[in-house]
Design a protein around this nucleic acid. Structure first.
Lengths: 185, 185
DNA sequence: GGGTACATGTAATCAGTTACATGATTTA
DNA sequence: TAAATCATGTAACTGATTACATGTACCC
């Protein structure tokens, strides 16, 4: 029962594999909806990946495909035993380091010295409000997750996201009011 | 003085353009060193981009290239007026939303229900220590930036990074000790 | 019964990454 | 002067994104 060693899977591969393992057999469209409600909030990617990635996983022998016989003839994918094992192995590995944040707002702040007057203040206001909106959405989602059982880990992940948003909000507010890290804090 | 509308530039393009604008004429290798010390901490990318991106910017008319005449014959690039203007315009635009965090640790936590026993606890310990290490490095860098003038925006950006690391550390510690968001917080 | 939004995909492109490769300096 | 290590790049590959395109169900 050796697992086929195909071309190394990416994080996105495991994301899709994980969804399939958690949810049971799903069509790409179902995955799309699930992603939009959960993981997509902090790991966004276009819906087309949900059509191209499962076949790739199938080629690696980690998921099984089944095509509906009726009118729509949708493809439905399911993680098999090898897939679940591969996922478990990946989850047990130490996470790769150094992904960074890749936040455009931060990048623009970094180059603040090249900005025209007022641009940094505008950026700070904008970022604060974007982040505030995001936090509200996350709070709503958190309420739903708490009310429904079986989502403990999703809830925890969201919790980290919310803490990130909270610090981002207060940071950008500080920037907007020029109160960032007063010397000799 | 219209700016040529080539193929849209990516965030990385502006990152390189910004470095060139800030630092003045630089070789890719000099950029590499500068990146490692600063922006690379939250926007990592391989050094080869620093060789391929400047020519792309040159093709777009935003930077000028000059090749040394001596032995090394290195290429040295500099943002020109059009480049500085394009950068300023980009900096003034609202930042694009929804980049997410793309943190592998978060992704693994999300799929905690599929993990083998103890894997989440191990993840939490590992993440906490990775983040702690990163925070220490950032603090050192912050010290240097404070001691040397002319880096206010770099310092501010780093400040946000440090706040992120701090919440991440306390979050993962909470996960490790099973104290994440007690019900009815 | 036609328009509009949801659902489901394919194809082409390309930025970003990985792999490789060689020249120049320093050091032992 | 050999061997590391630093410096400087090129080339190939491919995952991720963008653009497109068509089918199906619902509603006015």
């Amino acid at each position: 029962m050796t697992v086929t060693t195909g071309p190394a899977l990416t994080a996105t591969s495991y994301l899709v594999l994980g969804l399939l393992a958690e949810r049971g057999p799903s069509t790409p469209y179902e995955l799309k909806a699930a992603v939009a409600r959960s993981i997509g909030r902090f790991w966004p990617f276009p819906h087309t990946q949900l059509y191209t990635e499962p076949p790739r996983l199938a080629a690696a022998g980690l998921v099984d495909e089944e095509r509906e016989a009726d009118g729509r003839r949708r493809r439905r994918f399911a993680a098999n035993a090898a897939g679940r094992e591969a996922l478990r192995a990946w989850l047990a590995e130490p996470a790769e380091e150094a992904i960074g944040y890749r936040d455009q707002g931060m990048l623009k702040l970094f180059f603040g010295s090249q900005s025209s007057t007022g641009a940094v203040a505008a950026l700070a206001d904008e970022q604060a409000s974007v982040r505030r909106r995001r936090l509200v959405e996350m709070e709503e989602l958190a309420g739903w997750l708490e009310a429904n059982p079986g989502h403990e880990f999703h809830r925890q992940t969201l919790e980290l996201g919310m803490r990130f948003e909270a610090v981002a909000i207060s940071f950008w507010e500080d920037v907007a009011s020029e109160r960032v890290t007063p010397p000799r804090a």
